[in-house]
Structure formats: structure tokens, C-alpha cells
Amino acid sequence: MATQVPFVRAQRPKKQREVSAFPDRGGRAAGWWLYLIPGLALLTFVVLIPLVWNVYLSFTEYRGIRPPEWIGLENWVKLIGDEEFWASFRNTIAMIVAMVIVPTVLGLLIAAVLFDIVGRKFGGRTASFLRATYYLPQILPVAVAGIVIGWILRPQNGALNEILGYVGLGDLAHNWLGSPDTALLSIMVVLIWVQLGYPVVIFMAALQRVDPELYEAAELDGAGWWQRFRAITVGMIRPEIFVVTLTCTIAALKVFGPIYVLTRGGPGTSTLVPSYYAYSEFFQSQQVGYGATIATALTILIGIVAVFFLRAQSAAERADREGL
């Protein structure tokens, strides 16, 4: 919240109509739309038309060969009663924990510590080397990650079970991805590993625009590290925190690659997620209509989450501007 910034600014009385930040006199408001033409044109072809198409397919019976046949709400009714669909949504909550909550909180702490303690006391090189290491899993193609992780976690002579054997914990050896009780947890650990570097890099880039004098002033005022972290770090890089939480939440809702390469949703439905479910209906069961229904439902959910985030964000930004 803006109120955590310890320097109180004069409040402007009334909210104004949003106007361009670029005060050219000759320019017309409509002119700004010219800049959106290439972006919007591409968007229309690659996203908007397929989106509408997909919504249409969700009202049809379509197996990919004969033309789609209109069946009204049948798919949607089936969806509401579909146990597998709800199971996949329950797993999505686990994905949000593993891809949003843990990485953002941990990433914030790591970024602050690397920037503020490691960077200042042990040199920027050490800090950037560590940051690069945390970022490594992010540059790993998911196809490759699937090979490596599957191989570490596999039951016979997988690296993890071997390590447990070495340190005398051989009893804990397990078919990590193959048994219903550990599959989801294993996937979550993998996703945290993959995801962590992203907030670390974004937050450290954001910290560069925080004025070091702010920290020094706070230090003089007797603020401890934790207080400075909460009041300055978190307050100043709030735009990036929004960006990271939103993009990670979206990624968690539509996570597909890691599930596809590691478990294919199994065993049973223990790691099934909506987008994998949609994919399997599209391409394995050839139930294109029903697959489109799942995908559309997922899109609607993601859309609602995004609108919620964006409104919160623009409210915060406006509050910031008015506070200036």
C-alpha cells in the first residue's frame, strides 16, 4: 500500500479525467490509436478470431472430421457434472501455491537480500552470479526439463532415490511421480524450482530504480532491515509485484508443459489440470467440442482473475499519481 511509503506527499483534492501524459498541443486524442493498429491487427487474427471460433465450437459436437454439429448447451451441462473437470480445478489451487505464492514471497526476499545485503556487502558480481543461478531453470526448455526431472525422480536408479540411499534414508525411496500420494507434491516442487528465478530477476531489475538514499535515510531513522524491506522495498516495486503475481497466476491457471512432459495428468487424476484435460479431449479423445468447452471455461476464469488484478492495479496507480 502507498501508505507504507514513509514520506507523506501533499494530497491533491479531486480526481481528474485521465489525459495524455504527453502535452502536445497540436495532437489529437484519436491519433494515439494509430500506434495500436499493428498490434490490434495481429491480435485479431491470432487471438480474437480463434477465441470466437473456440467459443462456437463449445456449443457443438465436433470430432474433427465431419463439420461441427450444433448441440446447444449440452457440453456445458456435461462440464458442470464432470468429476474430472472439478478434480483438475482442485489441482489448479496447488499450482497457484507452487507457481505464484511461494515464488513471489520467496523471490521478493531473495531479491531484496541479494540486492541489499549480498550486493552491497559482497559486491555486485556475487549478487548477479547468484541471480543468474536462480534464473537457470527458467531458461531450461520444458521438453528438456521433462527429461531431466523425470530422470531424477524415476523409481529405478533415479538420482533422488540414489541420494536418499547414500545418506541412509533409502527407506524413503519412492516412485515420486508414479504414485498418487506424491505426484502432485513432486510437481509442485518442480514448479517452484522452475518459477523462482523469474520474480528474482524482475524484482532485482525493479530495485535499481529505488533511490539508495531512501534506505540510508531509513537506516538513520533506526529502521531495521525488515522494516526497510516492508516499507521501502515492497512499497517501491509494487508495480512489478503486480506484474509478477498476475503473470504467474495466469501461468498457473493454464500450466500445461510440465504436466505434459512429466505425468500426463496421472496417475488417475492426481495431477490433472484443466489445460491438459482440454488438450487430451482435443487430441486424444477427438472430442473437439468438449475440449473447446473446457478451454472456454478456463479462459473465462482466467479473464475474471485478470480483470480483478488489472482493476486493483490501475486503482493503485491512480492513487499513486494523485498522491504525487
Binding site: 501524459a21 494515439w32 480483470v307
Partner: peptide
Amino acid sequence: AIGIGRIRGNTWVVLAFLLANLLPQEALLY
């Protein structure tokens, strides 16, 4: 256009663009 020009309804325009990120890719494939 969105951030500097602050065109009308900029939140909604951002959202329209974000659709590309929101849609599960499997939905775009067919």
C-alpha cells in the same frame, strides 16, 4: 498509446492484448 497516450478505456485495451496470454494455447491450436 496506452501508457503515455492514456487512450480512453486503456485498462480494457490492455486486457484485450492480455487475452493472448490468458488463452490456454491448446484453445488456439485448432
